[in-house]
Design a protein around this nucleic acid. Structure first.
Lengths: 335, 335
DNA sequence: CTGAAAGCGCTTACAG
DNA sequence: CTGAAAGCGCTTACAG
């Protein structure tokens, strides 16, 4: 641990703490000669400012958190990964630092261990939240305490929370429609945890379309949270529903499970059963056959979220903004 | 931002700051009545301790970082993901908090934006480092400043750095041997960045075996850092080397690329070309056919690293420990 | 069992 | 252009 403080620098350079602070912070009101002298000493002593002391004083840490929840035992998947990468770039460019911590809608209140704890105490200037749930208490907290934040996802419980999200209902609708136009009449939709808003919306859009067309096959399955359950559910579906001709899987990574099940049964994609994903992560392209999927524009997602957050942090709240991105299909060879 | 401080609590409860501090920290020397009173006020005011002030005073933050470097544009893959998950569990159980930040061997020195910056200034009590390189300057820094750390990987430049690593040379050897025993005589090894020690070792082990057996096919390719390059390299290999009968791919995720290339060429796994991975992450099981791979014991990895780190943080340096884990093969159906 | 006070390492009105 | 001093919110010898 470094022990040299601003005081040591002041002493060694024959100036005062105030002056050293000035040069550290690039205040122009310092004589060139003094500045050089101080800088020399800083170099020599290997002084670095203590961000903790600075934060205590400034009430600002220049750090933001992104919260992720656990998914099927893992903290995040390929989609989170790509967003986080983008966010990293963005925050750095603005002189902020970003950390990742885990936090869950369910445990935030009492759990001193939930990463949300940090936020309560001002360790961060703002937060980006993945994986919020219906009626998420954390959102209430953030709003009450006027802490800058933005949700990656949707908030149905409040009108005045900033978020950026895919139009998930449309994604469900679009997927069903795309499959239908390609002649599929008996699609099944596989979805994650029913408590996440995103899944409810995708289900709604999907069902909306199948009802419009009066399809008798319009089953949606929740709780498909990982490759394993996708695999097992697909196997079961193949055995039980004779007319099955398409699987619409929420989350391309989980698509691996459905691919394996179909291929193991000696069936062919897309000839016997078409597969359509949602996400368009890097691996989607390397499934065989390459996966046709609904794109979530990762770049736009990150950029929008960051813009919304920065605005709050730098000019106080202001007007709250919500951004809804429209999904598009990336055609490859699985449908 | 919360504005209630320990002073407010003291005033409102008719006690002193000292006493409030005592109850916050569960000091037994407080009259039961006083404690209750204080706790009531804390509840009522919604007071939470400010960890920044506490850290400044205590010179200890109870936070640790895990550093990850960028890989082919992404910050981490499935393997990192699983380790990080374990680490999360472990740190929480001990009352520490863990954050993830990005840092690279190349940019740490000047780059104020490199996550390593935090460490220099005492924001963390210790560090867990992924992705160190040969002659990594960060290690020198950590040692000089006596900051607790542990490497997930190896350090060839120093004798006295704590790390936990897979026996990567043996992993390379074992893979070649396994393939050989199953009748494969012309394997190719696909590896990531040649600057990472792990890749050099795997190459060495592989070559050691092929030389022992006098195989004429013993090519190793570096720079296969993602699914895309694995895909392209495999395609090229199939076209150019007629006898090719096995691909040994470092990193199961990249295996997706080799699978696609082989299947696209109308070849069959393992009949025409066997595929062997290293990692054993969750998705390995869902490739089709399920991937035979060399296991990295994630649980042992995390537990060992954590133990080493905690020991340093809690009882000062002490003796430095290095742990080498022995890889084993997980047989599935791709060889 | 309880309190007054110093100090952790900074920044910033306020003077000069 | 430069400095002495207060204060950010805690913890902890030191007294009592």
């Amino acid at each position: 641990m470094n022990k040299i403080t601003i005081k040591d620098v002041a002493r060694a350079s024959g100036t005062s703490v105030r002056t050293v602070s000035r040069v550290i912070n690039n205040d122009p009101h310092v004589k060139e000669e003094t500045r050089r002298k101080v800088q020399e000493v800083i170099e020599q002593l290997g002084y670095v400012v203590n961000p903790i002391a600075r934060s205590l004083r400034e009430k600002k840490t220049n750090m933001i958190v992104v919260f992720v929840d656990r998914h099927q035992g893992l903290y995040w998947g390929a989609f989170h990964n790509e967003i986080i990468q983008e966010l990293h770039r963005l925050t750095r460019a603005k002189g902020y630092r970003m950390m990742i911590s885990s936090s869950s809608a369910d445990s935030f209140a009492e759990d001193e261990n939930d990463g949300f704890y940090f936020l309560k105490n001002g360790l961060f200037d703002g937060a980006i939240m993945f994986d919020t749930k219906q009626g998420d208490q954390r959102i209430t907290y953030l709003k009450e305490h006027k802490i800058p934040f933005v949700i990656l996802g949707k908030d149905k419980s409040n009108y005045d929370t900033p978020y950026v999200d895919l139009d998930n209902e449309y994604a469900g609708y679009l997927g069903a429609q795309y499959l239908y136009e390609r002649g599929r009449r008996c699609p099944a939709l596989l979805l994650g945890d029913a408590n996440f808003i995103v899944n409810q919306e995708r289900a709604a859009g999907f069902t909306k379309f199948t009802r419009e067309k009066g399809l008798s096959c319009d089953t949606v399955y929740f709780g498909i949270t990982d490759m394993g359950s996708a695999y097992r559910q697909t196997l079961k579906l193949i055995e039980q529903v004779k007319e099955l001709d398409a699987i619409f899987i929420s989350g391309d990574e989980r698509g691996l499970g459905v691919y394996r099940a179909i291929q193991e049964k000696g069936l062919s994609i897309p000839h016997d059963i078409a597969v359509l994903g949602i996400d368009n992560v890097r691996l989607s392209e390397y499934l065989y056959p390459p996966l046709t999927t609904i794109d979530q524009p990762k770049q736009a997602f990150s950029q929008s979220a960051w813009d919304i957050l920065v605005e709050q942090m730098e000019q106080g709240s202001g007007s709250v903004k919500r951004i809804i991105l429209t999904p598009t299909i990336v055609e490859r060879q699985s449908v």
